[in-house]
């Protein structure tokens, strides 16, 4: 197919989207990710019956929690497609990339950088 999608997306393979827990989503943001999206099979066609529905529920929980801590829940999304829909996979990637660019960088990452810079400055002052 040789479809193109944004190169800034890191794909993490899991056996089923149900393997993705809220903590995995949160840790991604703690480590500086600007957005996370989960791509599962179409609802109703999960090989494990309701794996993708569980994943959707977890995405919703993560969105609520992120909203409450000031990290905009929109940064997490759930998408569904079938294994044969490569074009849709690329489309979702572009869509997510555009959404995150609109929202800007992860505020936690920016705050961490600011704190580190302040600490560095304090250290430099002490050394001088």
């Amino acid at each position: 197919m040789r479809l193109e999608y944004p190169p800034n997306i890191k794909i993490i393979l899991v056996p089923c989207t149900a393997k993705v827990d809220i903590i995995h989503i949160l840790r991604s943001f703690e480590k500086g990710a600007d957005g996370v999206y989960i791509v599962g099979c179409l609802e109703g066609s999960c090989q494990f019956i309701n794996g993708n529905i569980r994943a959707r529920k977890r995405v919703e929980q993560a969105q609520t929690l992120l909203d409450k801590i000031g990290v905009n829940g929109e940064r997490v999304q759930m998408y569904n497609l079938s294994a044969g829909e490569g074009t849709l996979f690329a489309k979702f990637a572009v869509e997510m990339d555009e959404k995150i660019r609109e929202l800007g960088p992860n505020p936690v990452k920016l705050a961490k950088k600011k704190i580190d810079l302040m600490k560095q400055n304090e250290l430099n002052c002490e050394l001088n």
Binding site: I22, I23, L26, F29, E30, V108, A111, I115
Partner: peptide, 21 residues
């Protein structure tokens, strides 16, 4: 254990975001 991990991660992000050590 799971809820502890989730809460700890969320709180760490909240306080970092608010520049509170």
């Amino acid at each position: 254990k799971k809820e502890v991990e989730i809460l700890a991660s969320a709180l760490r992000m909240y306080f970092t975001n608010n520049q509170q050590e």
